[in-house]
Structure formats: structure tokens, C-alpha cells
């Protein structure tokens, strides 16, 4: 589904990604782990096309298309979704209006008919069950006055409505208590299918108890330094990131 080759990127003149290689196939869940500042979130932002990040080398193919050449909205239309670490507030714009606009743009780009308000509301209400959202949420402004947990649940709800092919979850577990974490993780699991793929970016192993990855990659200083199965996450949890750093030092 997505092939990342030798990806280099910088922000504000500083190189953060120093040659990322990663292949993700449909039906797979990949976890990207790593210490703070290793470039995990940068990878998520670069894949979704945040303008602050400059790609200096490498390429990314998404279902055969050059992803880096596409505007962020075109990437969304193609099926790339980013669940933001810090979801943005849009005062005065209701959640349902916002999400309906997004969904209809995506449908239009695929030559599908746009949904009218009634059809959309029906869909939204169904999807809201997945993340146990209260119905008052429909008319509240996007993320405004939401608690941390609500914002993260809202991200997963948006994902449920937009049905992306590739979902990138950027530190979706940060700031969540255990109950909220379970709801969010269950939401993600319910949306999983053989046709879509998920990249879970996280600092802690905790989330991976609930969203079980097929592969775990450890990102240190802008490079993937170790890949493995889900047991790698447990190893990291037990030994911390330092053991990887030590391994790296010894190999030099």
C-alpha cells in the first residue's frame, strides 16, 4: 500500500528524518516507536503533507502514486488519514458540518455521489457508536472546549466516517486515561479490515496492548534502527529505549 524509500525531511532548517525505509501492506498494523525527538511525529506529518516540513530526499509511493507530489487534500482523497496528536480547534464550525464537508469532498474526488444532510446524519450517528460519542457532539464546534480524551475520540470518529485506506495515528494515546484509551483502541480495531492499513506512532507500549501490531519499528535519531514483531514492543517496555541505543553504540 505504501512504500517509503530513503525519506529525508527537515523542519526549520534542521534535518529530522535521515533516511526512512518502510513498506506497509493492506491489512497490516505497523507500530512506530521511539524516544522523544526521534522523528516519529515528523514522519506522520510528512506523510500527510504538512507544509512546515520539507522533504529533501527519497520518495513515497502510495498505491503506486507519488504521494509527496500531492497536496494534503489530494492525499486525503486518495485515502491517507492522520489522527492528529494535537487536534486543532475551529470555533463556530460544527463537527457535523466540518466532517460532512470533508466526506463529500472525498466522495466527489472518487466520483461518488455527495451525501445530503439526512444521509450524512444517519451515517454519523452510526459511526458515533463506535467511539461512544454523545449526540450533543454533533452541533458542537470542532474540538472547541473538548477534553483531551474527547479530542482523540473525535479523531477516531472522523477516521470512522472517512474510511481511509491508510490511517496514521500520531500519539493517539497521549493524555488519555485507561478508559478513554480502551474506547479509542477498540474503535481502531473495529475499523480494521484486510483492505486498510494502520501506522501507529507511539512512545509507550501501553496502546499496543489494545491495538496489536503486526510489526514494530524503532525510530532513533531519524532512522529505523530495529524492526520486529509485537514482542519487540514488550522488550522496549522492559528495557527502555536505552538498550537499543547501547546496541547501536556497540555496533559502531
Amino acid at each position: 500500500m505504501i512504500e517509503i524509500k530513503n525519506l529525508h525531511a527537515k523542519v526549520a532548517g534542521r534535518e529530522i528524518l535521515k533516511g526512512i525505509n518502510l513498506n506497509v501492506k493492506a491489512g497490516e498494523v505497523h507500530a512506530i516507536m521511539g524516544p522523544n525527538g526521534s522523528g516519529k511525529s515528523t514522519l506522520a506529518q510528512v506523510l500527510s503533507g504538512h507544509p512546515a516540513y520539507e522533504v529533501t530526499d527519497g520518495h513515497v509511493l502510495f498505491e503506486g502514486q507519488d504521494l509527496l507530489d500531492m497536496e494534503p487534500e489530494k492525499r486525503a482523497h486518495a485515502g491517507v488519514f492522520l489522527a492528529f496528536q494535537y487536534p486543532v480547534e475551529i470555533p463556530g464550525v460544527s463537527n457535523s458540518y466540518f466532517l460532512k464537508a470533508g466526506l463529500n469532498e472525498i466522495r466527489k474526488s472518487r466520483g461518488e455521489e455527495e451525501l445530503d444532510s439526512m444521509q450524512f446524519l444517519k451515517l454519523l450517528k452510526e459511526k458515533m457508536k463506535i467511539v461512544e460519542m454523545d449526540s450533543s457532539f454533533i452541533n458542537r464546534p470542532v474540538n472547541e472546549g473538548f477534553s483531551g480524551g474527547e479530542k482523540k475520540r473525535n479523531e477516531i470518529l472522523q477516521m470512522a466516517v472517512l474510511e481511509p485506506k491508510l490511517a496514521i495515528l500520531d500519539e493517539t494515546d497521549s493524555g488519555l486515561d485507561i478508559d478513554a484509551l480502551k474506547i479509542v483502541a477498540e474503535g481502531v480495531n473495529k475499523l480494521k479490515s484486510p483492505k486498510n492499513a494502520t501506522i501507529v506512532v507511539t512512545h509507550y507500549q501501553r496502546l499496543l496492548n489494545y491495538i496489536v501490531p503486526d510489526f514494530v519499528h524503532v525510530l532513533v535519531n531519524g532512522r529505523i534502527v530495529k524492526s520486529g514483531g509485537k514482542e519487540l514492543a514488550l522488550e522496549l517496555e522492559a528495557n527502555g529505549y536505552d538498550f537499543i541505543k547501547e546496541e547501536l553504540l556497540q555496533s559502531v
Partner: peptide, 16 residues
């Protein structure tokens, strides 16, 4: 920029 990017990531172009 972040507000606009958030909208774009959900499929909505800059003007809209």
C-alpha cells in the same frame, strides 16, 4: 497554518 492543514487533511481544499 495548522487550522488550514487540519481541514486539508480531511479533504477540504484551502479556499474552502
Amino acid at each position: 497554518e495548522d487550522q488550514i492543514f487540519y481541514c486539508k487533511q480531511r479533504g477540504i481544499n484551502t479556499e474552502n
